[in-house]
């Protein structure tokens, strides 16, 4: 079973992928909830445009998304250079860039799941809360948010899974640097490009499957618990 043991480089790719995906999921979550809420509840001019922009990464070739990120967040690009000078945040050829690419690619899935759950919330409960003295902020925090928790959870799992598998946009935007931007898919891709890399590719594939399954099972268990809490005696 020695062939199953991961080499230090492979471990590094696994760790990096987990790190990047967790960051991509958590950092985009507040924006995801906010945008899902706006899209579910507000009517404004240009709503379909915003909706289209959010969904764009889902339909564009990932390479195109990665190239667009390069054009906007590269070190000499407008937003990229501004962020570097103002807060010292650099995306290009860093793990942060990988996280950004993953977040953008996963964002539509997250927003979709959360938006659906917000639309399913009974508006009457929120009206009841307001007659009890809760202002809009507290209604959201104490009623809406707890009720959409399963949807948020589903959105996070989807986003995490998508981030773990993201390849095209990441490799275009931040390349494939071992230890910095070489995520699991990039590492598998690299293995398939060199002679004798089959076992490495297989090992990382098994790791990918394990992580995906674990995430799925964890989300199922959490959703069951939330559901039980809501309907338990």
């Amino acid at each position: 079973m020695d062939w199953l043991a991961l080499s230090p480089e492979e471990w590094s790719a696994v760790r990096l992928s987990l790190w990047v995906s967790v960051w991509a999921t958590l950092a985009s979550l507040p924006f995801g909830v906010l945008l899902a809420f706006v899209l579910a509840r507000k009517e404004f001019r240009g709503k379909s445009l915003v909706n289209g922009l959010v969904h764009l990464p889902l339909i564009l070739p990932p390479v195109v998304t990665g190239y667009l990120l390069l054009l906007v967040f590269g070190r000499r690009a407008p937003v990229g250079s501004f962020l570097e000078q103002s807060v010292g945040l650099i995306f290009s050829f860093r793990w942060t860039g990988a996280a950004l690419a993953c977040a953008v690619m996963a964002f539509p899935l997250m927003v979709r799941a959360i938006r659906l759950s917000i639309e399913a919330v009974d508006h009457k409960l929120e009206a009841a809360a307001s007659t009890l003295g809760a202002g809009p902020f507290w209604v959201f925090v104490t009623v809406t948010l707890p009720l959409i928790l399963p949807g948020i959870l589903a959105g996070m799992i989807l986003a995490f899974a998508k981030a773990m598998g993201e390849f095209g946009a990441t490799i275009t935007f931040v390349s494939n640097i071992p230890g910095e931007t070489q995520t699991l898919p990039s590492a598998i891709y690299t293995f398939t490009q060199v002679p004798g890399g089959e076992t490495g590719a297989l090992r990382l594939t098994l790791v990918s499957i394990a992580i995906a399954m674990a995430a799925l099972l964890a989300s199922e268990a959490l959703a069951r618990r939330l559901n039980r809490r809501m309907h338990a005696a």
């Binding site: 009206a127 009841a128 307001s130 007659t131 009890l132 003295g133 202002g135 507290w138």
Partner: peptide
Amino acid sequence: VPPHKRRVGY
């Protein structure tokens, strides 16, 4: 006056 400031129960 918005509902949450009315102190009218429902």
